[in-house]
Design a protein around this nucleic acid. Structure first.
Lengths: 218, 218
DNA sequence: CGTTTCATTGAGTGCGATCAAGCCGTGTGG
DNA sequence: CCACACGGCTTGATCGCACTCAATGAAACG
């Protein structure tokens, strides 16, 4: 890899999250809601890409508490570890279509080896960036800010008028470092304040983007 | 880079933190305590390595609160960003000797281009791993656990009988997501419990490793 | 219609933040 | 040498937010 190529990788990380370029032959697999895609400590020689549905990666802390690594949506690559084994496990949040590719197959694509390596590196770099953002989120002062920020991010990612929460309250709580009760209370409060509007407990609509932003910054 | 080389990179991340392999020509620079090494949003075309001393990277959150990215000690590489600009700034915690190398110089080393790329990637991967650990730390329940875990990590990294804290209480607090008062209280408490022993407020000794570990896991 | 699972709501408590003094080592100048 | 100021750290008192425990509500399923 030349340094020019290297800089291209860096530049790529500023691009939107969806990973283009993994249009290599991959086996399309279906996973049912709740099904495990790979386990913690399992050997990591496969790379995954969400075609349809949502995925979460989790990990059991030494204290028994569950940590959520991240959520992945259509277009996202996941399962790339920095070691030989998966340090998180991955589960389907709903019925999913996942493209699965063997690492070794990628490397044998010969024609343009750089492309593959770049993709992998770019994915790692992006993962780092997202983890740092998550860290920032966890340090936010109040539970309200956390939840508001989470909903806003999600709405931005999917970009429709209304957004469907792909995960339950427990997953939100684990991701935000809160309890399920607190998440519930904050959702109720945000709704009472007229900032978001829920219909059912999985569909919501942003009613006041500026109001939410003010909560987060202030 | 072949895939074999790629796997070697991955394997390297399990190795101790000190980055071997950056024995490329670098300019040795001295920084005084508190001096800025690079600024947030500055262009990131230099790579740094701690020769002597300690460095912290920081970042201002949107809410004005200071987030500490990480602390770096002798042997550690820092300043590698995933984008074109530094997303954190770096400051010397004490008088430091830093080896500074231009990225472009590295890539022109031609002879074994892989080595450089691998080093950079390995550093990125390690950074990701450390960030994930930090995330886990921030989610620990109590302030006591956080402080205990921090002191234990530090003692392990330096490995002597007694350890010198390279940073002040405010830096610890920012890193752990606590206030300076709480950090102080916890230090006092850990000492009262006979788990650590401070002489002055920067030198300490682990008195009961098992006791500390129990705190963290429990 | 009961059962199960998930979310909401309520009451009470505890931990860490906040506000406010005090303490101590260090440096400075008389 | 002392007096003083200054910054970093510690200690104290109080308060509020989020956790805990517990009960209720609401869908989804057989």
């Amino acid at each position: 890899m030349t340094f020019a190529a290297l800089n291209t990788v860096f530049a790529d990380t500023a691009a939107p999250r969806r990973d283009a370029g993994l249009d290599v032959p991959g086996v399309r697999m279906a996973f049912a809601a709740g099904e495990e895609i790979y386990a913690q400590d399992e050997e990591a020689d496969l790379i995954y890409r969400v075609i349809e549905g949502s995925v979460r990666t989790t990990r059991l802390g030494s204290d028994g508490r569950r940590q959520i690594g991240d959520f992945y949506y259509p277009g996202d690559v996941f399962g790339l570890e920095t070691g030989a084994e998966h340090r998180f496990s991955a589960e389907a949040l709903c019925d999913c279509q996942i493209s699965v590719t063997r690492r070794a197959v990628l490397s044998r694509q010969g024609d343009d080896g750089f492309r593959v390596e770049r993709m992998i590196w770019a994915a790692t770099a992006r993962e780092l960036q997202r983890t740092q953002e998550h860290l920032l989120l966890l340090r936010r002062r109040t539970a309200c800010e956390k939840v508001a920020s989470f909903l806003l991010d999600l709405a931005d990612r999917f970009g429709g008028e209304t957004t469907t929460l792909p995960m339950g309250r427990q997953d939100m709580a684990d991701y935000l470092g809160l309890t399920i009760e607190t998440v519930s209370r904050m959702v109720t409060q945000l709704q009472a304040d007229g900032l978001v509007e829920f219909s059912g407990n999985r569909r919501f609509r942003i009613r006041s983007r500026s109001g939410l932003s003010r909560l987060i910054v202030a």
